[in-house]
Amino acid sequence: MSDAVLLEADLPMGGIKVVEFAGKEVLLGRISSGIYAVDNLCSHAEERLANGKLKGHRLICPLHGAAFDIRDGSALTRPATKPLSTYTVRIENGEIFLGEPGKENS
């Protein structure tokens, strides 16, 4: 059985999807430079980022407007200061697989 988290075709350009991976909610987003995966919970007040919006590479929290760079998880604006965890993304045969950075399965 495949452990893919999502079909690539189910993630349109500019779209976001939430999947479960390694016991956590992970947000997948697709922008022109590729598909990226970060924690779904804001590093500031733990709001679900999937309730916000992806604008270009900026993932915006709906609660206080904090923005993160979806490409590397970095916090771009206050009140967030801590980065989001990121996950490696691998695409095979139209399926998206995630890995945790630094681990074998990535």
Binding site: N51, K55, I60, P62, G65, A66, A67
Partner: peptide, 17 residues
């Protein structure tokens, strides 16, 4: 200041940090 950034963003409502 409520929203720290400049330019485009998104808010479900406005909440002071």
């Amino acid at each position: 200041r409520l929203l720290g950034y400049q330019g485009g963003g998104y808010s479900g409502g406005f909440r002071c940090p």
